[in-house]
Amino acid sequence: MKDLFSEQSELYQQARPTYPQALVNCLIQQLNGLECAWDCGAGSGQLTRLIAPYFQTVIATDLSQNQLDQAPALPNVQYLQQAAEQTSFADQSFDLITVAQAIHWFDFEKFYAEVKRTLKADGIFAVIGYGLLELDDQDLNERVGCLYFETLNGFWDAERRYIDEQYQTIPFPFEEIAMPQFQIELGWTGLQLWDYLNTWSAVKHYQDQLHVSPLASLQDILQIKQTIGVSFPILLRVGRLSHLK
């Protein structure tokens, strides 16, 4: 698994969107038990904090200790620096395993072996993410699209394609559960959008290689924008161990 976000862990925690409560409610309704959950690739806890109220114990792991250090301290949550593909957990430990906006960085085969080993027989596995944002300001939306598809073309890691493909092309060797569609809907200031764009891994790669910000042309307009309607499509694959019928 790659660690692309340790250096910007504080910005990531502040600027990345959170997930809708309706999504969490829908996942919880699928469960038979609420003892223990594992939030893998938890980063700074965007999803961890949302599922924590429902479980006796939540274990949140990430490759980046810097990211975990930004996560909220919660009484029933334990944060551990561990790779997704090799964990210290006992067999059949978890009622729910989640991975949010991270699975595209994992070694699928090794991670899925851990999921199958540590998920309870009647447990649920959920892959969650979000795609390219859309803005209600048409001009700004076109500018961000140009940034994403043109300016940053060649600077995205290859794994990013799984998000562009809505997580529909990842291997998913589980018995899939049909789920509703969800969206993240927010009202952001221009500065909040600026901070979010600065968390993109391709922006960092561009700056590291060319020593100039790919966001320079957006800086002036974002400094004066008050409220921008922002929506992200939620990517979601949910399943059970395939031996259950």
Rank of each mutant, 00 (worst) to 15 (best):
A37R: 03
A37N: 07
A37T: 09
A37V: 07
W38C: 11
W38P: 12
W38K: 02
W38E: 07
D39F: 07
D39P: 14
C40H: 00
C40G: 02
C40Y: 05
G41H: 05
G41S: 03
A42M: 10
A42V: 08
G43M: 02
G43E: 06
G43S: 08
G43F: 06
S44N: 11
S44M: 03
S44D: 08
S44A: 15
S44V: 10
G45P: 14
Q46L: 14
L47C: 11
L47M: 15
L47A: 04
L47D: 11
T48H: 02
T48G: 09
T48E: 08
R49S: 15
R49N: 08
L50C: 00
L50W: 00
I51P: 13
I51E: 02
I51C: 09
I51M: 08
P53Y: 00
P53W: 00
P53L: 00
P53N: 00
P53F: 00
P53A: 02
Y54L: 12
Y54H: 15
F55E: 03
F55T: 08
Q56D: 13
Q56R: 14
T57D: 09
T57M: 02
V58C: 02
V58L: 01
V58T: 07
I59C: 04
I59T: 12
I59A: 02
I59M: 09
I59K: 12
A60R: 02
A60K: 03
A60M: 04
T61E: 00
D62G: 09
D62A: 06
D62L: 03
D62C: 05
D62N: 04
D62F: 01
L63G: 06
L63P: 01
S64F: 06
S64A: 08
S64I: 11
Q65A: 11
Q65I: 10
Q65Y: 11
Q65M: 07
N66G: 11
N66Q: 15
L68R: 05
L68H: 08
L68A: 12
L68S: 12
D69S: 15
D69L: 10
D69N: 15
D69A: 14
D69M: 10
Q70Y: 04
Q70P: 12
Q70H: 05
Q70D: 11
A71L: 01
A71Y: 01
A71P: 15
A71Q: 07
A71V: 10
